[in-house]
Design a protein around this nucleic acid. Structure first.
Lengths: 193, 193
DNA sequence: CGCCGAGTTGAACTGAATCAAGAAACGTGG
DNA sequence: CCACGTTTCTTGATTCAGTTCAACTCGGCG
């Protein structure tokens, strides 16, 4: 039960829901453990879950012409899913890879949609989650449009310095939309400070 | 009343709602006319509306270091808003400019949130709108990450050829994340076919 | 008419990619 | 716990897509 404390808190932070609704919801959550290198989903599969990370971290990426492009990273306390596929029920174009030992709680699609239909707070939570996802994507899009590689690195450094120390150059560079070599060079400039 | 037929249809396509709820909602909608060059919102203002376009078209853009970057275009039958600001209640970083004579229906923030609170279908509609917005942003982000300028143009040409004939080079190029001169050159390649 | 913004074209330049090769870090098995 | 192979990171040299700057054309409109 204490396994579910964190996700409960995260959901209640979106919108408080009656304890009775929460209990019914929590009964159908699935606790899962993953090893580094495992996948929550692979390209071509339809996303069946939204995961909450009790512990661990993940990388969402897709492959185009044999090259990997990282869309996002998630960490302890985040919700993760191949959201596009979860919404549209189309096969996912993204992979979600576990970057370390991870404890996650899976919210099944079916459960969530029952919740959407049964309770007002269902769609409320769904709306707030979708809005939060939208904001992340818009921010990143604006950065990609208007900033140079170096500016994007600098922006990330101030906005999310943890990322830069935790994530490999290879993954970070594909998130920033540049090659590892370029990131290495940019990094050198900033190391002097 | 017939003014509201199109928006009613658009909303019902998201999720059907009881006629009574619709009527209450429709009573508080605001019909507005705009001229080419007007603005729905400017940088620094907090977004008070979601607009539905009965007729006309708009451009969402932001300015960084004196340069314009276009995030999106909208046309007849679309919902338009500075969504980031609408959600967060923070001052908008985007402008929304009218590209032609436009008839729009404004949904006030307050009305929408009353609707969210009062009816299950409120948040449902909000969720579906947010999900749709998310999908647009993710698609564009993936294109910016993984495609070259020319590939982005080619993709747009097949996905939305109307855009290419309607929108000026200047606006289109800032949407694709390139300079007008570059778009002009890319276009020349494709003119031969 | 003549102006003005939008689009095109050319030439030079540059940020980042690519190619290549060495150094450092990592993990796995002996 | 070390030795080895594998992957990741760095650095250098070269190339290239797209930018920048500048000049010219075109179509609309006062």
């Amino acid at each position: 039960m204490s396994d579910f404390q964190k996700i409960k808190q995260a959901l209640f932070q979106l919108t408080p829901i009656p304890e009775r609704e929460w209990n019914e919801f929590a009964d159908n959550l699935i606790f899962k453990n993953f090893s580094k290198g495992d996948y929550l989903i692979r390209e071509g599969q339809v996303e069946k879950f939204i995961y909450f990370l009790n512990k661990g971290s993940t990388r969402n990426y897709f492959i185009k012409d044999g090259k990997e492009f990282t869309v996002d990273f998630h960490f302890e306390g985040d919700f993760v899913t191949a959201y596009y596929s979860f919404i549209t029920r189309e096969p996912s174009s993204v992979f979600i890879e576990l970057l370390e030992e991870t404890e996650a709680i899976a919210i099944p699609y079916k459960l969530l949609h029952e919740f959407y239909n049964k309770y007002q707070h269902g769609d409320r939570i769904g709306r707030l989650m979708a809005e939060a996802q939208y904001i992340k994507r818009l921010r990143k899009e604006m950065d990609l449009l208007s900033l140079t590689a170096e500016e994007r690195y600098a922006a990330l450094m101030t906005k999310n310095p943890a990322l830069i120390s935790t994530i490999s150059i290879k993954h970070l560079s594909s998130y920033l939309g540049i090659q590892p070599e370029s990131l290495s060079r940019i990094r050198k400039l900033y190391r002097k400070n």
